[in-house]
Amino acid sequence: MITTDLMHALAISVVLLAQTPETTWIIYAASLGQGTAAVIFRPAAQAHTPAVVGVGPLLSSANALGAFTTGVVGRRRVRRPSTARPELRTQGPERA
């Protein structure tokens, strides 16, 4: 987990090297590195939770808190505009 944290720091700091349009590829490489580190870190952190809080009643609270924070902070979903799939659009009151 320490190694993945160092990978995160390295990936984010490499972004500072992209200062011209020709070096924007560095941002994509840094994003790939950061995403790879996150894929490794999250399961390791979840597996380490019972060792930190024990297997008693605090485990369910810790799992709930971890699921909430991962759902709120860890996921970045980009929604497509409604024009992407017109068959899924609903008619509002102005179109009725």
Score class of each variant (00 low, 15 high):
46 Q>M: 13
53 V>S: 02
19 Q>H: 14
3 T>Q: 05
60 S>D: 12
60 S>C: 05
46 Q>I: 10
90 T>G: 07
79 R>A: 09
37 A>P: 03
3 T>W: 06
88 L>M: 08
40 I>P: 04
8 H>V: 10
9 A>Y: 12
87 E>N: 06
7 M>E: 11
5 D>N: 12
36 T>W: 00
3 T>L: 05
8 H>E: 03
22 E>A: 10
38 A>Y: 06
15 V>W: 09
74 G>I: 05
24 T>C: 02
7 M>D: 12
47 A>R: 15
67 A>K: 15
84 A>M: 10
18 A>Y: 03
11 A>K: 01
84 A>W: 15
62 A>H: 06
1 M>G: 06
5 D>W: 10
60 S>K: 15
65 L>I: 12
26 I>W: 03
14 V>D: 07
81 P>L: 08
39 V>G: 09
87 E>K: 07
67 A>M: 11
5 D>I: 08
60 S>A: 13
28 Y>F: 15
77 R>P: 02
47 A>S: 10
9 A>E: 10
51 A>F: 08
76 R>W: 14
31 S>P: 00
68 F>E: 11
48 H>L: 06
18 A>K: 05
7 M>N: 14
64 A>H: 15
6 L>R: 06
90 T>S: 11
82 S>V: 14
96 A>G: 12
70 T>G: 07
14 V>M: 14
58 L>P: 04
51 A>C: 01
40 I>A: 07
91 Q>N: 08
16 L>A: 14
62 A>Q: 05
49 T>Y: 05
1 M>Q: 07
18 A>M: 02
65 L>S: 12
39 V>P: 02
48 H>I: 04
76 R>C: 00
33 G>P: 00
26 I>T: 00
76 R>D: 00
93 P>M: 10
18 A>T: 01
72 V>T: 05
70 T>K: 12
27 I>T: 06
44 A>Q: 14
73 V>W: 14
38 A>M: 07
73 V>R: 13
10 L>E: 06
52 V>I: 09
94 E>Y: 15
29 A>K: 05
59 L>M: 09
